[in-house]
Simulated scan of single mutants.
Amino acid sequence: MYEFNDREKIIVFTGPDGSGRKSVAEAVGQTFGMAKVVSYATRSQRPGEVNGQDYHFVTHATYEEMEMQGEFLESVTIDGHYYGIRGLDVEEHLDLRGCVYLILNREGAEILKKVYGEKVVRLFVYADRRTVEERQRRLGIDPDTITARLGHYDSEMAYRASCEHAFENYDLGQTTYEITNTLEAYLQRNLVDKD
């Protein structure tokens, strides 16, 4: 098992699809100079997604081989697709930067919390159902995918009470600022002006 030092943290951004968690995570990650750990997925790339940046898109056969080799810390199946995080990716990024972030659904967030305990800080980012649906439509996501994602909305929202912090996201700048202030207490990077 990986040996953490006092300052090392795994920051998990979670919440419903369309909540803006990816935009918030990337802004906060850049502010703190955190490395992003990219998950593996067997589904097809969606418009605007970049392989190696949003997910490592792999075939079912490749994913199953990696899983048989014990490479994944967590592996979940959602709507018939596999998603997983390689333990080696987490540990290598922690060694380099001392802090990493991930964007995960509730299953992935919960598994990481069980594996790494207090070193994991879960940040729940959310918006109301109508806003989430509108954001996904504006991104050009196909209606069937939006319907499938909204089918998970209530179960994702129920996870909010389990997370260390929750942030309503209607303004990217404001939400990023609030999360940066919150993480400053954990990371002690002296990025926030207290005056």
Rank of each mutant, 00 (worst) to 15 (best):
A166I: 06
F124A: 01
V125F: 07
F124Y: 10
N181M: 09
A166N: 13
L102Y: 05
R137S: 06
L150K: 00
D142N: 14
R122H: 11
H152F: 12
V120F: 02
V121Q: 04
Q136R: 11
K194D: 11
N169V: 13
A109T: 07
R160L: 05
L150T: 03
Y170L: 12
C99H: 05
L139R: 15
T176E: 11
R130M: 13
G98R: 04
Y170T: 11
E133L: 05
E107F: 08
F124K: 02
R130P: 04
A127N: 04
V132Q: 08
T176F: 09
Y159W: 03
Y101V: 03
Y126V: 06
G173Q: 06
D144S: 15
D154I: 11
G108A: 03
V100I: 15
V125M: 09
Y153A: 00
Y153T: 03
V100N: 03
R129C: 11
G108K: 02
K119I: 07
A185C: 06
S162A: 15
L187T: 05
N181A: 07
I141F: 12
R106P: 09
D144C: 10
C163K: 03
Y170C: 03
R135C: 05
D171H: 12
D142I: 10
L104K: 08
I146W: 06
E168Q: 12
K114W: 08
L150S: 00
T131Q: 10
V121G: 01
V192F: 08
G117E: 10
E164V: 10
R137C: 08
R106Q: 07
D154H: 09
A185G: 10
R129F: 09
T175V: 02
A166H: 15
G140L: 04
E168R: 07
D154P: 03
A109W: 07
E133P: 00
K114T: 05
E168H: 07
Y126L: 10
N190M: 10
N105G: 14
R160Q: 09
E178L: 13
A148K: 15
T180I: 11
S162K: 14
R129K: 15
L102P: 00
A148E: 14
V192D: 07
T131A: 10
C99N: 06
R189I: 08
Y126S: 09
I146F: 06
C163T: 13
